[in-house]
Amino acid sequence: MSEKNVKCESCTNQKSQKFDEIANIIDLYKDKEGSLIQVLHLAQEIYGYLPLELQKMIATSMEIPLSEVSGVITFYSFFSTTPRGEHTIRVCLGTACYVRGGKKLVERLQEILNVQIGETTQDGKFTFEIARCIGACGLAPAMMIDKKVYKQVNVNKLESILSKY
């Protein structure tokens, strides 16, 4: 009944390979000042996201308390602790965008994607998040998909924007 029986062997192998790879990186960067953020970046790059299990491994090998590691991860929005979609949508809810209809964008996207904020769509395509000011206040409301910024977004155009991905 244990979980092990359920998991397919090649997944488990892949996972431990990735963990090994991350362990190697930690060995390289461990003693450098302030290297935690770099290690986390690389780990996320390799593993896709930073689940608790991985955080524990990083905390142990870097000799940093787990609470500090998770503190750093949850502080920066570019780290994720849940599996991520292929693309990340971030709708700005900074003051300017909020006032100029950012909230409508959020509502509509929730409908289209059928997810709540912070979640990933069923098909694993999009992760949906909100941001606080992405520096396009003049052309609010704004949103980002991955690194591309969309300005003065019209609610009715959302579907066609998404269809490009």
Binding site: I64, P65, L66, S67, E68, S70, G71, T74, F75, Y76, R132
Partner: peptide, 11 residues
């Protein structure tokens, strides 16, 4: 030196 409590999340 227990390292149990730290700030989580931001703002």
């Amino acid at each position: 030196g227990a390292g149990v409590l730290n700030a989580q999340n931001r703002g």
